[in-house]
């Protein structure tokens, strides 16, 4: 796990790592502050506040996972350090897995930072544990999915600029129906079809169901969990297929 440790030391223990941690905490603080003090937002039901905050955590997690993992291989290729890694007696897929785990670790750190905010926002309700568990479950699955697909992209495209752009487009494509589509569009056949196949929509709908409609049992959310799980498995298969062998010919 040497590569994993190097990645983590750069993203978490260094001052550069501290920069994103402080930024993430500031965003959470600002959103929580607005939810609790803004004239209109503070009128929201507590479940809806938690739901909005959970959306922010998941979207921030997805964006961070996408950017971090899509640049993890390509920056090494561009810096000329990747060929030396390939010369060591480590399987290529193991290099990719360690890079992927480091991104998931970043998500976990982000998630851990968000937990106190979830607890505060859920104060006085029975939603705190459900919010923590479901955000953790969906966030982790989506982080794995986005990390794996982004690393595969980074592996194929070999340039940071292109792989980051494509990864961000994938994140946008996943989140657009839930975040940006008007309710009327979401109720059309096309909108319904998109929601049914989109793992991010399932995540949002599930959090809505848990936090707003108070349907906290796992069996009640299973119809939302399995599409996210399938998406993660598909992304992992793509990841394992593309990262088995790396050729330096295009370096």
């Amino acid at each position: 796990m040497i590569i994993y440790r190097l990645e983590i030391s750069g993203s978490i223990y260094s001052w550069r790592g501290a920069a994103w941690i402080i930024t993430a905490a500031s965003i959470f603080s600002l959103v929580a502050y607005l939810l609790l003090t803004d004239k209109e937002l503070s009128l929201l039901d507590q479940g809806e506040m938690l739901f909005t905050f959970s959306e922010v955590i998941i979207v921030l997690g997805l964006v961070m996972s996408g950017i971090n993992s899509s640049s993890s291989i390509s920056t090494e290729i561009e810096a000329g350090t990747f060929e030396c890694l390939l010369l060591t007696p480590i399987k290529h897929v193991q290099i990719a897995i360690q890079k992927m785990l480091s991104t998931v670790t970043i998500w976990i750190v982000l998630y851990l930072i968000s937990i106190p905010y979830l607890i505060v926002l859920a104060n006085g309700t029975n939603l705190a544990i459900s919010a923590i568990l479901y955000v953790g479950l969906y966030g982790t699955l989506l982080s794995i999915a986005i990390s794996t697909i982004s690393i595969a992209l980074s592996w194929m495209l070999k340039t940071s600029k292109n792989s980051i752009m494509v990864a961000l487009m994938i994140v946008l494509l996943l989140s657009a129906p839930s975040l940006f589509f008007a309710t009327s569009l979401r109720k059309t056949d096309f909108g319904i079809m998109l929601e049914n196949i989109n793992p991010f929509s399932h995540t949002i709908n599930s959090l809505d169901s848990v936090l707003v409609d108070n349907q906290q049992a796992v069996y009640e959310q299973f119809t939302h969990i399995w599409p996210v799980l399938v998406f993660t498995i598909i992304c992992s298969i793509i990841f394992l297929t593309f990262t088995r062998k790396f050729e330096v010919k295009m370096l």
Partner: peptide, 26 residues
């Protein structure tokens, strides 16, 4: 193998760089 153009982790020092690779070789 010493490739013609090698990149480095410039934030490391020489000792750390070699130790990183030594660990990769187990």
């Amino acid at each position: 193998f010493l490739p013609e153009s090698t990149g480095f982790y410039n934030w490391m020092n020489g000792e750390e760089y070699l130790y990183y690779f030594a660990r990769l070789y187990n």
